[in-house]
C-alpha cells in the first residue's frame, strides 16, 4: 500500500487539477457546443435540432456588424501594434542611455485594466470636453474629432486605445528578440561595411520570424477576446456600432436571455481562436519534445 502510494503520488497530485481542467474547460466546451445545436432560449434545452442557432446568428445584422468590427479592429490593431512595437524596439536598441526609464514608460499601460484604459480614453476622446474641445479652445473653431460618438468611426477609437495599451508589450517582445540575435553576425556585417539599416532589414528582422509569430498569436488572441475595453470605452455603441463577438455573446447570455445565440456565438469565437492558436501550440510542443 505505501509502496503503491509512493509510486503514484505524482499522479495523485496532478489529478485534481487535471480533472478540473477536463470538466471546467473541455466539459464546458462540450456543453456549450451541445446547447448551440438546440433551440435553447431563456433556459437551456437539450434536444439537438441542428444548426438553427448558427443560421439565426448569421442572419442577424448585429452579429454581422460584430464580425465586421472584429475584422477591422483585429487587422488594424495587430498590424499597427506590431509595426509600432518593432519601430520602438529598434529605436530603443541604439544604445539609449535612459533605456530602462523609457521602457518602463512604454510598457506601463499593460499593467492597467482594460476598464481603466477605456475610462481614460473615453474621457480624452469625448467631444464635449476632450481633445476636440481643447483644440477648439486654441482657436481652431472648426476642428472636429468626434470618433467616439460617430458610428462610422467609433471602432477606430477602440483600435487606438488597444494599441496604446498593448504596443509597449510588443516592443518588449521584439526588444528581447533583437538582443538575442547573435552579436558576431552583426559584427561580421559591420566589418563588411554593411549600413545599419541594411543589417536590420537583411539580417536581424528575418531572424526574428518566431517572435513575429508569437506577437501575432498574442495580439490576435487579445483581439478576439476584447470585451472589457469596448464595454468601458463605447459600451458597444453608438447603437451597435462597436459590438464585437465578445460583447454580442455577453449581451445574448446575460441581458437578452438568449442562451442558444450566446452559445453559438461563443463557439464561433472559440473556433477562430483555435484556428490560430492550435497549429502554433502544436508545433511548439512538438519542437520541444525532440
Amino acid at each position: 500500500m505505501t509502496k503503491w502510494l509512493e509510486e503514484h503520488t505524482p499522479k495523485l497530485v496532478l489529478a485534481p487539477s487535471f480533472i478540473a481542467i477536463l470538466v471546467f474547460v473541455y466539459g464546458f466546451i462540450a456543453w456549450t457546443a451541445w446547447v448551440s445545436l438546440t433551440r435553447s432560449r431563456l433556459l437551456p434545452r437539450y434536444e439537438i435540432e441542428g444548426f438553427i442557432q448558427y443560421e439565426r446568428l448569421f442572419d442577424s445584422p448585429r452579429w454581422d456588424t460584430a464580425l465586421n468590427n472584429l475584422f477591422i479592429f483585429g487587422l488594424l490593431f495587430i498590424l499597427i501594434a506590431m509595426f509600432l512595437g518593432l519601430i520602438l524596439a529598434i529605436l530603443l536598441d541604439q544604445n539609449i542611455r535612459t533605456e530602462g526609464a523609457i521602457r518602463t514608460i512604454y510598457l506601463y499601460p499593460m499593467a492597467l485594466s482594460m476598464i481603466v484604459t477605456g475610462t481614460a480614453w473615453k474621457w480624452i476622446l469625448n467631444p464635449g470636453l476632450g481633445i476636440e474641445a481643447m483644440v477648439r479652445s486654441w482657436g481652431f473653431e472648426d476642428f472636429t474629432f468626434d470618433w467616439l460618438v460617430n458610428p462610422e468611426m467609433a471602432i477606430y477609437t477602440v483600435v487606438l486605445a488597444a494599441i496604446w495599451q498593448s504596443s509597449g508589450f510588443v516592443m518588449a517582445l521584439f526588444l528581447a528578440g533583437l538582443r538575442s540575435v547573435d552579436g558576431e553576425i552583426i559584427k561580421a556585417a559591420q566589418v563588411d561595411g554593411i549600413p545599419t539599416w541594411r543589417v536590420y532589414t537583411a539580417i536581424i528582422i528575418p531572424s526574428m520570424a518566431p517572435i513575429f509569430l508569437s506577437a501575432f498569436i498574442v495580439l490576435s488572441h487579445l483581439a478576439i477576446k476584447s470585451f472589457d475595453l469596448v464595454i468601458a470605452l463605447t459600451g458597444g455603441g453608438p447603437g451597435y456600432a462597436t459590438d464585437l463577438p465578445a460583447t454580442y455573446m455577453y449581451a445574448m447570455a446575460f441581458s437578452r436571455g438568449d442562451i442558444g445565440q450566446a452559445a453559438s456565438s461563443a463557439m464561433i469565437m472559440m473556433m477562430v481562436v483555435f484556428a490560430i492558436v492550435v497549429p502554433y501550440l502544436y508545433s511548439e510542443l512538438r519542437s520541444k519534445d525532440g
Binding site: I21, T32, M249, A253, A266, M270
Partner: peptide
C-alpha cells in the same frame, strides 16, 4: 498539453455552463 490548450480558450465559451 491539454492544460496548456485550456489557457487559450476564449472564456465566453465557459460562461454559460459556469454560471
Amino acid at each position: 498539453s491539454l492544460m496548456l490548450f485550456g489557457c487559450f480558450i476564449p472564456f465566453q465559451v465557459v460562461l454559460l455552463p459556469m454560471a
